[in-house]
Simulated assay, not measured.
Amino acid sequence: MADGEAGNPVPRRVGDVSPIKHVLYILKENRTYDQVLGDMAQGNGDTSLVLFGERITPNQHALAREFVLLDNFYVDGEVSSDGHNWSMGAYATDFLEKGWPTSYGRRGGAEISSGYRKTGDNKGGYIWDQAKRAGVSYRTYGEFADNGRANIPVLRDHFATGFHSMDMHVFDTLRERQWERDFDSLVAAGALPQLMTMRLSNDHTEGTAAGRPTPFAHVADNDLAVGMLIAHLSKSAVWKETVVFILEDDAQNGPDHVDAHRSTAYLAGGMVKRGFVDHTMYSTSSALRTMELILGMPPMTQFDAAATPMWRCFASSVDGKGFDFRSARVDLGS
């Protein structure tokens, strides 16, 4: 039996029914907690390490302020290569963990994560395989699906063909509008999946590449896309029975005064607490365990099985108040 409390929408036993019917899991790229939320006085932050503070990320700050601020959350992956497998499968293979340094060091070898090479795939599959086994409907937007094709068999016919995969030349705000069209059509048809995964990757940035938008512009675009998505979802018919998890795949890109793995995580939905600060230590596997319990799926590995579910972030009653996105405060093309 998992940690929890009676009446909480996160069940303690696999198979117990939750009032939450839909989970949207969004993966972003490479940020530490202090880089983004270190300026929030309610949390354990170091303002000297803030790079993309509230002026750049007003929507993520609003989500942390209006819903739950998580200042003790840690990613399980080291870099994006193993981070995506950890984020979708609660572990990465020994082959992948030993192989990515060669690829990252440009000493040979190609990317082997995210379904690009079968030898790098998790033995038991990923969260979509678990959903299929449990009879849970699912769909992915850009995660493990690139350039109009699924990277792994379980995602064939279960991905949005009109959603752009990772490409720094495509705005995340465009991806958000692509998602809106797909989401609205599924809701209208009564066919919205129980589990949806998405990749919103522009907070990765292109560094200071000549002729390209600055890191601040890329992160601001990503932040606006997140805000627009939550605002649109919050005004839909399914808001009260939906929860959104927003995580980074890893935290490799910057410093943090607590730990190099400490990262941002956000929750939103009709049964997520409002104005709550949670100092509980959570991880990527904690988020996966929470989703699994909500959707009635068993854990995938020993890591999510042992992880603390994020039940403290949820309320026993619905708050139907929506979310209003904040406009970008910087030029997204600068």
Rank of each mutant, 00 (worst) to 15 (best):
L96V: 05
P193T: 00
K132Q: 15
V226M: 07
G320K: 05
L192I: 10
A225L: 04
G105L: 10
G269F: 05
H158Y: 07
N147C: 14
V272Y: 06
K21I: 07
R262I: 10
I56H: 01
S283F: 04
E78H: 01
A92Q: 10
M88V: 06
Y33S: 08
G190N: 07
L174D: 10
S285I: 03
V79P: 00
K235R: 14
F67W: 14
V170R: 00
Q42Y: 13
P299C: 09
W239E: 03
A145P: 02
L233I: 10
T161H: 08
I20F: 04
I56R: 02
T290C: 04
I230K: 00
M88D: 02
A268D: 05
N44T: 15
S234G: 08
Q60D: 09
N8P: 12
L69V: 05
G43N: 06
S236Y: 12
P213H: 15
V244P: 02
G108K: 02
L288P: 01
S283R: 10
K28T: 10
S286W: 00
C313N: 15
D121Q: 04
P19F: 10
G270W: 06
N202R: 14
L27W: 06
F216N: 14
F323H: 00
T161M: 08
L192G: 00
G4K: 02
T242Y: 06
S236L: 12
H84E: 09
